[in-house]
Design a binder for these strands. Structure first.
Length: 621
DNA sequence: GCCTGCCAAGAAGGACAACC
DNA sequence: GGTTGTCCTTCTTGGCAGGC
């Protein structure tokens, strides 16, 4: 049994049943494709359940069969592609199959491109797949296996992780050159003369600015402003001179978007916020017309909006979340604006405390905060190398990976060495990403406005809000699986520390993983409000001590005194004590501060609180 | 690049009154 | 003394502008 061999090979990292279920889906996809076309599936097997291993096994099985279908395997980064390629090409070598597998990326493009259609299995990255779908590159060359003397055969497409579903562009005249950067570039590679460059640049900027001023929610063809005039003819001539063949793909994309804005109505959305206006363009990329497709995405069930038209092939989730996963809510505001030096310091202090209890914890944070946390030593000496940008030479030499941050952990297997992760802020993307998804999926008429002042719903439109929540949950669930949790047979507890004040996400995660309350903790980190609480604590303790000493002297009782809180500080102290006594954390703090002054708070049988002082006994002796 | 202030409405919490 | 209800103040939230 090849399955069993494979499982023993990779050891304890695979769950036999989860792996078998996953492999079954891959196999049935291949079998189904032999019978019919237009098969579009998504395999929702949780991270760590052996999707990549099953893919390797499938490839090997197919390699041993005569006339097995050719495949196009799509990876979301170079590292996973390399690891797959290395294993399969070794297998090919052992089994004398020189034309079993090839990969194509920018490093080897000129070397292998001519013969890529000779290989049974071809690997590319998601960027290349997107480009092919958008019309860049030779579709047939990649999509068909074509050996001499044989009929060309269409490849089955298997995509590892969610592919790029959105093609988008922004036109923004307030940020530097954003609206004409593509024109500058295309002009340069097309050797436009200076006069054309100037004319085009100014006119394009004007057209976009004009549309922003007068346009409504959706753009109308920009050409209407110059229709029939000299400028219109001249712009058409200049655009005709632009050569896209040698140009940078990114700029060609934007050029295509501009042409659409110029000629058609309802292309761009005017994104008006109080910070300015920009024209947002976005369209969904539908891969289904490319052929039979299987997407392997372990969080696809969380984002159904993206997978309409695909048949969901679920695999039972075999992770033992209840027995292993612990979520720790460290309540403190970690939004972009509240990450002040004070907040960073509070989080850092908390992390040091946590490390003495939980051992090594890998912190993850926004890219912009990496240096600050290196300075604070929250990122420890032996973790720094994961966060630092490596020089090109280093990367080539060691095959090492891009530096990590909270948004760049995809395919980072190194994270699985850590039993504990700390998310020092939430992986919430810039709102424009969610807006573009919404435009792409729901159309240009969608209301993409931010719901100012209501933070339980970030977006005014309910569907856009739901979309944002889908993406967020998929992002964070993926992220949580990147640590040792993904080692599905391990029994070690996993601790995830989430620094945020948005408790609804903690609740959503608890629900998603089905965690009982005993797997959850919550600690309020000192915020401004808590700072004030500690001040009040100190103030009332001092007042209580003063009062008790005076009272002891007055009644001349060396055994100590016991007084009601309201006697000391009136209703104000009574209210304060009552309110904070109900909060366990705060109660402990109050007791601690009062004990330092040799004051005890005794709760009587009917619930009354008495402030007691007997340190005077020693004092009077 | 760092930091502060701004937006604006809900949540949290403080002050006080009325009542048990 | 505690509890409940009301009114009021302060805090919170993410992205951006603008000062330094």
């Amino acid at each position: 049994m090849s399955n069993v061999n494979l499982i023993s090979e990779v050891g304890s990292n695979l769950h036999p049943q989860a792996y078998e279920d996953t492999l079954n889906i891959l196999n049935s996809f291949v079998r189904e494709c032999e019978k019919r076309n237009e098969i579009h599936w998504v395999c929702n097997s949780a991270p760590g359940q052996g999707k990549t291993t099953a893919l390797k096994e499938l490839t090997k099985e197919m390699a041993s069969k005569r006339m097995a279908s050719p495949m196009l395997i799509v990876f979301n980064n170079k590292d996973t592609m390399n690891s797959y390629y290395e294993e399969i090409s070794e297998y090919a070598l052992e089994h004398y199959r020189p034309f079993l597998i090839q990969y194509l990326n920018e490093d080897n493009f000129t070397k292998v491109y001519d013969e890529v259609d000779q290989y049974q299995v071809l690997c590319i990255t998601q960027q290349r797949l997107r480009d092919l779908r958008l019309g860049y590159g030779d579709f047939n060359k990649i999509m068909y296996e074509e050996k001499e003397g044989q009929r060309a055969r269409e490849r089955l497409i298997i995509i590892d992780e969610m592919p790029i579903f959105v093609n988008d562009a922004d036109f923004d005249i307030s940020s530097k050159d954003n609206a004409v950067d593509w024109f500058d570039h295309l002009g340069e590679v097309s050797s436009l003369d200076e006069e054309d460059m100037q004319f085009g640049r100014i006119l394009i900027n004007k057209l976009i600015a004009r549309e922003m001023e007068v346009g409504e929610h959706v753009t109308k063809n920009l050409f209407r402003y110059i229709q029939g005039g000299e400028s219109g003819d001249k712009l058409n001539e200049i655009l005709k001179k632009l050569k896209v063949d040698t140009a940078n793909r990114e700029h060609v994309d934007k050029y295509k978007w501009f042409l659409k804005l110029l000629r058609k109505d309802n292309v761009g959305v005017l994104d008006r916020s109080k910070y300015g206006t920009k024209i947002m363009c976005a369209e969904a990329i539908d891969y289904k017309p490319m052929g039979n497709i299987l997407i392997l995405d372990g969080t696809s069930d969380l984002m159904p909006s993206f997978y309409s038209g695909y048949i969901m092939k679920g695999v039972k989730n075999y992770h033992n979340y209840k027995g292993r996963l612990n979520l720790h809510h460290r309540a403190i505001s970690t939004s972009a604006s509240s990450r002040t030096p004070d907040t960073i310091e509070l989080i850092s202090e908390d992390m040091f405390k946590l490390r003495t209890k939980y051992g090594e914890i890998l912190p993850l944070m926004a890219k912009s905060d990496v240096q600050r946390y290196i300075d604070m030593k929250v990122i420890t000496e032996n973790q720094i190398s994961l966060f630092e940008t490596k020089t090109v030479g280093d990367v080539a030499e060691s095959h090492s990976e891009m530096p990590i941050n909270i948004f760049n952990t995809v395919g980072k297997n190194v994270l699985s060495d850590f039993d504990s992760l700390a998310l020092l802020n939430l992986p919430i993307r810039h709102p424009s990403s969610y807006k573009k998804y919404a435009i792409a999926l729901f159309g240009t008429e969608t209301n993409i406005r931010i719901n100012d002042g209501n933070f339980s719903n970030w977006f005014e439109d309910e569907a856009v809000q739901r979309l944002y929540e889908e993406v967020f949950m998929a992002d964070i669930v993926q992220l949580i699986h990147r640590c040792a949790l993904r080692n599905i047979n391990a029994t070690t507890p996993v601790h995830i520390f989430l620094y945020t004040n948005q408790k609804r996400w903690i609740e959503r995660l608890q629900e998603h993983f089905g965690l009982p309350n005993r797997n959850m903790t919550k600690v309020q980190l000192r915020s401004n409000g808590q700072g004030r609480f500690m001040n009040d604590c100190e103030t009332w303790a001092v007042k209580s001590l003063e009062y008790c000493r005076a009272e002891m002297k007055r009644i001349n009782n060396p055994l100590g005194v016991s007084v009601y809180s309201s006697t000391i500080g009136g209703a104000k102290f009574k209210e304060w004590l009552k309110r904070h006594w109900s909060d366990e954390m705060k109660r402990e703090k109050i007791i601690e501060v009062f004990e330092k002054k040799e004051l005890t708070i005794r709760v009587t049988s009917n619930g009354y609180k008495m402030i007691e002082f007997n340190g005077g006994l020693l004092y009077l002796e």
